[in-house]
Computed example of a mutant assay.
Amino acid sequence: MASIRFFAAAAEAAAVDAATIDAATIGALRAALTTRYGAEFERVLGRCSLLVNGTRATDDAVPLSGSDTVDVLPPFAGG
């Protein structure tokens, strides 16, 4: 199972900071997260970047293994 870490608005929408999910690809992970956390989380997830072991995953076909860590990062501003 991949370890998932939620940050900022993603953590608020999921009501957790971390989870484990069994998913073979980023696309399957998105579907599993939406099923688990609901429509509000899906709305937030649509704006988030997903990083697999620190590398941005831009394609739903990116494979996941049980040892991967996925960070769910909403857009943020800083100054």
Rank of each mutant, 00 (worst) to 15 (best):
M1I: 01
A2W: 03
A2H: 07
S3A: 12
S3G: 07
R5D: 03
F6T: 03
F6K: 08
F7D: 12
F7P: 09
A9R: 15
A9Q: 14
A10G: 06
A13L: 04
A13H: 03
A13E: 04
A14G: 05
A14I: 12
A14P: 05
A15Y: 01
A15Q: 14
A15D: 13
A18Y: 00
A18C: 02
A19S: 15
A19L: 05
T20Q: 13
T20C: 05
T20G: 06
I21L: 04
I21N: 02
I21P: 00
I21K: 00
D22W: 00
T25A: 03
T25F: 08
T25M: 05
I26W: 06
G27D: 02
A28N: 10
A31E: 14
A31C: 03
A31T: 14
A32R: 08
A32L: 01
A32W: 02
L33G: 11
L33Y: 11
L33V: 09
T35P: 00
R36D: 10
R36Y: 09
Y37R: 06
Y37G: 10
G38H: 05
G38Q: 04
A39N: 11
A39H: 13
A39L: 10
E40A: 14
F41R: 05
F41S: 08
F41T: 06
E42V: 06
R43H: 11
R43Q: 13
V44R: 13
V44G: 08
L45A: 12
G46C: 08
S49W: 13
S49G: 13
L51P: 09
V52Y: 08
G54D: 12
G54M: 10
T55W: 04
R56E: 15
R56C: 06
R56N: 08
R56G: 07
A57K: 13
A57P: 11
T58E: 15
T58K: 15
T58S: 15
T58N: 15
T58C: 11
D59A: 14
D59I: 07
D59M: 09
D59S: 13
V62N: 10
P63F: 01
P63L: 07
L64H: 01
L64E: 02
L64C: 01
S65I: 02
G66T: 05
S67K: 11
D68H: 04
D68M: 02
T69I: 09
V70E: 07
V70F: 02
D71R: 02
D71G: 01
V72E: 06
V72D: 05
L73V: 07
P74V: 03
P75G: 12
F76Q: 04
F76M: 08
A77C: 10
G79Q: 04
G79C: 03
G79H: 02
